[in-house]
Design a protein around this nucleic acid. Structure first.
Length: 410
RNA sequence: GGGGAGGUUCCAGAGCGGUCAAAUGGGACGGACUGUAAAUCCGUUGGCUCAGCCUUCGCAGGUUCGAAUCCUGCCCUCCCCA
């Protein structure tokens, strides 16, 4: 059986490593405690966080102990790495609320039972930090000269960097030190953009504890079209089913570029690599099968098997040409009386959220991109009535090629 | 604290008294072609009671028949000096 580190490498999670030999040995020798930090600034994690989550999940399956650190303390400080804008500052109450939600989300991937995985909040130590003590014990180990030569800061030197942001790295290093002391955590993972911050922690542990901690970073996942993972026109793809429905989540994976399929299967499913390679090797139209496996597996781990089955069935119905698609297609309800009175197509499309404004929907119709029950809408003044409903009192709206909405009367 | 530059529609970036809902590029969206892929081509891209009207060019006032464009104050960003 391959070690957890071999699994990570094989699946494409590994980019930079502090000391590859030492890391490999650690994973061979026994349970390793490793951590990744998550930012609780949002109400939900999104697909961009999923690489890190899956990395922890794979490690846990290899018999090791992951720690998910949420930055309840650092959330109040912007991370200058790679970003050019400050993130909004939240109240501690809002952050604590987000943390609760994030933990719930993470438990779909990680098994927190009996301490097999841990979730900790750096607010526990950061918020009660004493400035002077901190400067004396931690600050003395950081060289400003060296920090300034780091890529993350160098670029920010052009546009300006506040003292607040400058401290981010120090606090993240301190987190690592605390986790090392409290939980024997000897390894930190993160995206490539975090390399500087992570290594700062490794250095701090060496200086304070004279121990060698390790760092492993993941390549920043960019898709073949150069876009950042998880961003769509609608914004991020969220893990919260209330923010991105399982159907849309499934669709996200179905719509990935052919060239990305194999890599994504490695990262976001637990399928054995033989199978991943086989699916990734499919050519031409056959690769759609690989995409449906990817979509199904990814949806299953995030939303559960039942939701995955539903999403798949809904997609098959609607794209396979079945009329109203059945319960599994995203649905909005509308009072039957509204249809009896007659409702304008444009209004209905807006209500079904297939367009942001009436102008947008009008444009859609004028360009021939809107259809009702599979028939192209010819004019913007088309009225819909009960005659457009099927036996079950349902009609199907379609915007463009792939956005569907089932309208049900109630 | 002093001096300089600047804040324009999703982003970048033109415009510097009317011809401006605002060039151009990117992105996004729609169509054709396809495989719910990519590439390519065409079109669209503030809102609405849509051949007209309304609201936008950091904020608040002012000049003018008329302002994104001129003036005043304020806020914010960046650069140089202290």
């Amino acid at each position: 059986m391959p070690s957890a580190f071999e699994v990570l490498k094989e699946r494409g999670f590994v980019s930079q490593v502090t000391n590859e030999e030492a890391v490999a040995r650690a994973f061979d020798e026994g349970p390793v405690t490793c951590y990744i930090g998550f930012d609780p600034t949002g109400k939900s994690l999104h697909i961009g966080n999923l690489v890190q989550i899956m990395m922890l999940a794979h490690v846990q399956r290899g018999g090791h102990r992951p720690i998910a650190l949420v930055g309840g303390g650092t959330a109040m400080i912007p991370d200058p790495s790679g970003k050019d804008a400050l993130r909004p500052q939240l109240t501690t109450g809002a952050i604590d609320q987000n943390i609760t939600r994030i933990k719930k989300q993470l438990s779909s991937y990680l098994d927190f039972d009996g301490g097999r995985a841990l979730m900790v909040n750096n607010a526990d130590w950061l918020r009660r930090l004493n400035y002077i003590t901190f400067l004396r014990e931690i600050g003395e180990h950081f060289s400003v000269n060296r920090m300034l030569t780091a890529e993350a800061y160098k670029t920010r030197m052009e546009t300006g960097l506040t003292f607040l942001e400058f401290n981010y790295q120090i606090l993240q290093a301190y987190d690592f030190l605390m986790l090392f002391r409290e939980y024997g955590c000897t390894m930190q993972f993160g995206g490539d953009d975090q390399w500087g911050n992570i290594v700062a922690g490794v250095d701090l542990i060496r200086r304070k504890e004279r121990e060698a901690a390790q760092a492993v970073t993941t390549p920043l996942l960019t898709l073949s079209d150069g876009k950042k993972m998880g961003k769509t026109a609608e914004g991020a793809v969220w893990l919260d089913p209330g923010m991105t429905s399982p159907y849309d989540f499934y669709q996200f994976w179905i719509n990935v570029d052919d060239r990305d399929v194999e890599g994504l299967l490695g990262h976001f499913t637990f399928l054995p690599m033989d199978q991943v390679r086989e699916l990734g090797g499919l050519k031409g139209e056959k690769i759609r099968h690989a995409k449906s496996v990817l979509a199904f597996e990814a949806t299953k781990t995030t939303h559960g098997e039942e939701a995955a089955v539903q999403a798949e069935r809904g997609a098959r119905n609607v794209f396979g040409g079945a009329q109203a698609g059945g319960e599994d297609v995203p649905t909005v309800e509308i009072g039957r009386g509204r249809l009896e009175a007659g409702i304008n197509v444009v209004d209905l499309f807006v209500e079904a959220e297939l367009g942001r404004s009436k102008s947008e929907v009008r444009r859609l119709i004028e360009q021939g991109g809107a259809s009702v029950n599979g028939e192209r809408v010819a004019a913007i003044d088309r009225m819909l009535g009960t005659g457009d409903l099927d036996e079950e009192g349902v009609l199907l709206l379609r915007a463009g090629k792939k956005r569907f909405q089932r309208v049900k009367t109630g």
